[in-house]
């Protein structure tokens, strides 16, 4: 509750500053409040994940994972936690765990190639069956929009697949970009499924319990 008030007060301060120099009507205020909230949420989540990555030495890997997850998530949707705190912590932990796998669990080119194929088919199935996976705060109600987002998710997956094929044909060694993005795509595909939603709910419960104890 305190954290929500802090974010809300930040938004109010930013908007009052903008209002001093430019006339903002009520409709514009709603749009700007929402835009500011999105930016603040994104900055908190990216910063926490990248700060942790910087500390444990997997910055590059985590940056690539976040990039891959973010692009696909924008079109395919997926599970979210119930508040900004849990979402930021959950995202930071998962992306850094995946980053550690990329850095310390070295694999051969043939193994990575097999892993890419498995990931591609899992993502294809998950997008085909569940995308766009919406959240209660942002339901996707129209069939046209659902179709459009699903199609764009397939396009993102295809572009990633082309990038992997190019890597396989042209580059002789294992690329961090390919390895990290594969894990990112796999994780993002998992968050689309029913089990992904169940897992996020479980993490939510655990984090809420932990923070209640701390408070």
């Amino acid at each position: 509750m305190i954290k929500n008030i802090t974010i809300d007060s930040c938004i109010d301060k930013i908007l009052s500053q903008l209002n001093k120099h430019s006339q903002i009507d009520e409709k514009q205020r709603i749009v700007l409040t929402y835009g500011t909230r999105i930016i603040i949420n994104s900055v908190i989540s990216y910063s926490l994940a990248l700060l942790l990555a910087l500390i444990i030495g997997v910055f590059k890997e985590v940056l690539i994972i976040l990039f891959a997850v973010s692009i696909l998530r924008g079109f395919s949707g997926g599970a979210h936690n119930s508040n900004i705190r849990n979402c930021a912590i959950n995202g930071a932990i998962i992306s850094n765990l995946l980053g550690l796998i990329v850095k310390y669990f070295l694999i051969s080119k043939a193994t990575l190639y097999s892993f890419i194929i498995v990931t591609f088919f899992i993502a294809l199935w998950a997008i085909g069956k569940y995308a766009p996976a919406d959240t209660p705060g942002k339901p996707i109600t129209t069939i046209t929009k659902r179709y459009q987002l699903k199609r764009r998710s397939f396009i993102v997956l295809s572009l990633w697949c082309f990038m992997c094929i190019y890597w396989f044909l042209r580059i002789p060694h294992v690329s961090i970009i390919i390895y990290a993005s594969t894990l990112g795509i796999l994780w993002q595909s998992m968050t689309l499924t029913k089990n992904g939603y169940k897992l996020y709910n479980k993490v939510d419960q655990i984090l809420n319990l932990l923070f209640r104890r701390v408070e």
Binding site: G35, I38, G91
Partner: peptide, 21 residues
């Protein structure tokens, strides 16, 4: 800020982090 708001509305959910209502 307007671009961020409308990009989010056009997408399935926020690109990273929490999806507000």
């Amino acid at each position: 800020l307007t671009f961020a708001a409308f990009t989010n509305i056009a997408s399935a959910s926020s690109w990273v982090g929490y999806q507000p209502e």
